[in-house]
Design a protein around this nucleic acid. Sequence first.
DNA 1: TGTGACATATAAGTCTGACTTTTTGTTCCC
DNA 2: GGGAACAAAAAGTCAGACTTATATGTCACA
Lengths: 233, 233
Amino acid sequence: MSTTGRGLHGRVLDTLGPEITAGEYPPGSVLRTDELAHRFDVSRSVMREVVRVLESMHLVESRRRVGVTVLPAHEWNVYDPQVIRWRLAGADRPRQLRSLTVLRSAIEPVAAGLAARNATPEQCAELTECALGMVANSSGHRLEGYLFHDVAFHRVILTASGNEMFARLGDVVAEVLSGRTHHEVMFEDPDPAAVTLHVQLAEAVRERDAARAEKLTREITEGALQELDILAP
Amino acid sequence: MSTTGRGLHGRVLDTLGPEITAGEYPPGSVLRTDELAHRFDVSRSVMREVVRVLESMHLVESRRRVGVTVLPAHEWNVYDPQVIRWRLAGADRPRQLRSLTVLRSAIEPVAAGLAARNATPEQCAELTECALGMVANSSGHRLEGYLFHDVAFHRVILTASGNEMFARLGDVVAEVLSGRTHHEVMFEDPDPAAVTLHVQLAEAVRERDAARAEKLTREITEGALQELDILAP
DNA sequence: TGTGACATATAAGTCTGACTTTTTGTTCCC
DNA sequence: GGGAACAAAAAGTCAGACTTATATGTCACA
C-alpha cells in the first residue's frame, strides 16, 4: 500500500511522517537527527535522508545549531500524495476527507467540461464501459466491483480533461471514493440516482456537450458533499 | 527567490531539478549517483540526499543495480511548489501557466463562495482594503502596486474559504499573477472591468452573498483564461 | 544598568572509505 | 533451448572524523 515501502529509509519515513502529520509533535517542536537515528536504530546517513525528504514536504525545517523543527500545518505540502495518505490514515481522517471532497467539487465539474471537448474516442468508449460496469454492480452488494468502475470512471474524466493538474488528482479521488466504501458510509447499495448521473455524464461527454457534462458532474459532487453533511452551495 | 537556497545540497537540487523538469533527460534515462556526485563535485552523501528528494517528488526512481531512472512527466508531483517554480522558470512556462490558470478557474469561484460564508470580519476588512488598493493603483502605470494588492486579495479569498487545500494554492496564484505582470501580457494599465469585479467581490463576501461571490469570481477567472487565449466554458 | 563585541558550545553539514544487498545479465551445463 | 549457478554493478548502509554556522552566554566598557 505504501509507496516508499522498500528500503530502510522508507520504513523510517513511514513511521515518522505519520507521527508528524498526526500532530504528535506540536509546531515548533525540535527533533535532533542523532536522537532520531538512535531511536530508529539507523545510521545518521539514513536519518539525514529522511529529514531531507520531510523538509521537501515542508513538514519540518532543519537549521544548524538548532535541530529539526516541526512546521505548523499550514506550511505543509498538503497536495503531496504521501502526505495525503499519511493524513488519511491518521486521526484527522474525517477533516482531510472533507477538504478533499470540497476540492473534488471544485475540480471535477470543470474537468468534465474540458473532457467533453478533448476526450478521444477511446476515452469516450472507456467512459461508457465504466458506466456500464457501475450499472452492472449497482445492486446485490457488489460494492467492490462498483468501486472499481467508479474510480476508473473518474480517473478517465480527469485524464481526458487534458489538464495535467487535474489528471494528477486521479489518485486523490480514488482514495476518497475508496475511503467512502471501506470506512465511511455506504453499507448498502449505491444510490441509483448517482448511477444514472454517471451514465448520463458518459453520454454527455460522448456527445461533446460540455455544459451538460459540467452540470451533471456538479450534481454528482454535490451528492458526495451531502454524504459528508457539507452544505451545498 | 529559491526556497532551498542554502546548503550544498540545495544548490545541487536547484540545478538538477530544473534540468529534469525541463525534459533534458527523456523519461527512462538512467543517471548514476556516483557520476552525478563527480559532476557536481560533491560527496556521495550529499548526492544521495538530492536523489531522495527528487524521488519524493516522483521525478526519478532509484533502483539497485540499475541507477536513478527519470520518470515520465505524468508521474511528477506537479503540485509541489518547488516543481511548479522549476517548470515556470523553464522552457514550458507557457504550458504550465495555462494549466495553472485553468486550475484557478476551477478553484477560485468555489473558494469565493465558501469565503462568503466563512470569512471573519477581519478578512472582510482586508478584502475591501485590497480592493481599494487595486483601485488606487489601477491607472498611471502603477503595475507593481496593483499586483501587490491583487495577490493579497486572492490570497485572502483562498484563506478565508476555510479549506486548507484551497489556502495552499495562494502561492500558485501569486506566481501566476506575478508572471502575468512581469513576463506576459498587460503592458498597459489593468482592465477597469476587472478592477470593478474585485470591488464587487469584496462587497459580496462582506454581505455573505455566496452565489454572487462565486459568479463574480467566475467572471474574473474567465478574464484570465481569455488573456491566455483559452476558450471559456 | 544596558549594550556591544567576543568566545564557546552545539547540532547540522560534509567527506571518505569500507562493507552489504539486491538485481541483472551471462555463462555453463543438462 | 531452458534453467540454474555465478559474477558484476550500482544503490544501500554504516562508522567516524572533520567543518561550519549560529544561538547563547560572558565580560568589558560606556
